[in-house]
Computed example of a mutant assay.
Amino acid sequence: MTDDKDSGASETPKKKKKQAGKQRSFLRELPVLIVVALVLSFLLQTFVARVYLIPSESMEPTLHGCDGCTGDRIVVEKIGYRFGDPKQGDVIVFLGPDSWNERYKSIRSSNAVIRGLQNVGSLIGVVPPDENDLVKRVIATGGQKVECCDDQGRVLVDGKPLDEPYVINDFTFTPGTLTCTTPQQSRRCFAPVTVPDGNLWMMGDNRCNSADSRFHVQDERQGTIPIDNVRGRAIFIALPLSRIGLIRTPDDPPKLRCPGQ
């Protein structure tokens, strides 16, 4: 009996040593695990997918970003466009060209240290990138001619009207009274533009509240944006939880209001 007790007592220090060894081993491995997690996050954010916040109402009601509501956080996948270009109807996130950036203000701190931390955080996706990332819908691609409107007020691409059930809010267009040929033109109208190769004509779903390609038609690209500026295709609403799901045309969206109408 005495030998058994002595044996049990002698094992206790050994267990403590093993536990201490495991703790030291974990502490040594922790920095490596953190670095691996950060590298994986960087790779995922750069090459696979990234989450973006919708900051404005230009895509209402497909994507929420209106004043007084919770802006959608969307997942933007980056793999698909490595094997093909954006297509008509895709909702994409892109970097605004220079002429689109007049109102953009940096979201970085004026403090050099904090700004450096923010830049590092941006690499791993915990801080938004300091760039004018916008979300709109592809209406026409390189070589296509886009204009508005036909006699029903629809956008034409290569002479064919688009069926756009996602557009709920647009400027008034009244056949015979307020069209593209009446003395007072509808604000919906814009002149034909042939999209340069390698570029895209972009429009927001909230047509009368979107500073899109129509707004920048006087720039060197006639309002189009280079495909090289595309960050990826918006596929999923991640937050808020009440709107989580794939990005689709709303089934029963509310009628919004255009300014001045």
Results as ranks from 00 to 15, higher is better:
Gly89Ile: 15
Asn119Val: 00
Ile225Asn: 09
Gln261Pro: 10
Gly65Asn: 12
Lys5Val: 10
Gln45Pro: 01
Thr174Lys: 13
Asp90Val: 13
Val91Ala: 11
Gln185His: 03
Glu57Gly: 14
Asp98Phe: 02
Asp4Gln: 15
Ala20Asn: 14
Met202Thr: 08
Val127Phe: 12
Ser186Lys: 02
Arg221Ser: 15
Arg103Ser: 13
Ala211Thr: 08
Lys5Asn: 10
Thr174Ile: 15
Ser99Leu: 02
Asp98Gln: 11
Ser122Asn: 01
Gly125Glu: 06
Gly232Leu: 00
Val48Tyr: 03
Leu200Thr: 11
Gly232Pro: 01
Lys22Arg: 12
Asp130Gln: 03
Ile227Glu: 15
Arg214Asp: 03
Gly89Asp: 15
Thr177Tyr: 07
Leu123Gln: 09
Asp163Met: 04
Cys149Gln: 08
Arg233His: 07
Pro13Ile: 00
Ser210Met: 09
Lys78Tyr: 01
Val138Phe: 04
Thr174Asp: 10
Gly71Tyr: 14
Ile92Ala: 02
Asp151Tyr: 07
Ser210Gly: 10
Leu239Trp: 14
Ile34Thr: 09
Lys22Cys: 04
Gln185Leu: 01
Asn132Ser: 13
Thr174His: 05
Glu131Phe: 01
Gln185Asp: 01
Phe94Tyr: 15
Pro165Val: 09
Arg188Val: 01
Glu57Leu: 08
Lys22Trp: 09
Gln88Tyr: 05
Met203Ile: 06
Gly68His: 12
Leu156Pro: 02
